[in-house]
Simulated scan of single mutants.
Amino acid sequence: MNISNIHETLIAKNSDLAGSSFTDVNLREAKFTDVNLSQSEFTDINFSGTRFNDVNLSEVVIENCDVTGMTINGLLVTEMMRAYGEKQSAG
């Protein structure tokens, strides 16, 4: 199915959209519950202000990302990276 130039709310339940591709799509304020995004790829994505709760992030790779203000379990990622860098420099 090819959907182009649509400005509507989409509700997908109990659906298999495996292998789908989204390019230049606005999913602002979208809600994802019980969704399998394993083996997915995100490139040039704006996740600012997004909240992840009860999410399996095992084997996730984060590269070339602005993590300003990002926290993991209440800890600032920039502070964790700074502390790690200091430990690496000292050792």
Rank of each mutant, 00 (worst) to 15 (best):
L17T: 03
T9S: 12
T71L: 02
E29N: 12
G74S: 07
K87Q: 09
V35A: 06
I6H: 10
V35P: 03
E41C: 11
G91N: 12
V25G: 01
N26V: 14
R51G: 11
N53L: 05
R51A: 10
E59A: 08
G49F: 01
T50H: 02
I11R: 10
K87F: 04
A83T: 08
M1Q: 07
T68K: 13
D16L: 07
D34F: 11
R51C: 11
L75A: 11
L37K: 03
N56V: 06
S4T: 15
S38H: 08
R51M: 14
N64C: 10
S89M: 09
K31N: 13
F47T: 00
E59Y: 08
D34I: 09
V61Y: 14
V35K: 03
V77R: 01
E8C: 10
A18S: 15
N26W: 04
N36F: 06
D54R: 07
E86T: 00
M80R: 00
H7P: 01
V25N: 00
T9C: 12
F32M: 05
V60T: 14
V61F: 11
N56L: 04
Y84W: 09
V35Q: 01
S58Y: 11
G19K: 03
V55P: 00
S89T: 08
M80S: 02
L57R: 05
A90D: 06
Y84T: 00
I72Y: 10
N2E: 13
T33V: 14
N46I: 12
S20R: 08
N26I: 12
D44H: 10
I45T: 04
S21R: 15
V61C: 09
F42K: 01
I72N: 09
D16R: 13
N46Y: 04
N26C: 10
D44W: 06
E79S: 06
N53D: 15
L10I: 15
I45P: 02
V35S: 02
K87P: 01
V61D: 15
S40T: 14
F22W: 11
A12E: 08
F22G: 03
N36I: 09
N2V: 15
M80I: 11
L17D: 01
N5V: 00
N46R: 05
F42Q: 03
M70H: 03
L27N: 02
H7T: 05
A30Q: 02
L57T: 13
S48A: 14
F47Y: 06
A90E: 10
N64D: 14
E63N: 13
E63C: 08
G69N: 02
E41H: 09
T71N: 00
D34N: 15
A90R: 03
F52M: 06
T68S: 14
Q39Y: 13
Q39F: 11
K13Y: 12
E41R: 12
T50N: 03
N64F: 10
N26H: 07
H7W: 04
N64G: 11
D16V: 02
E59M: 09
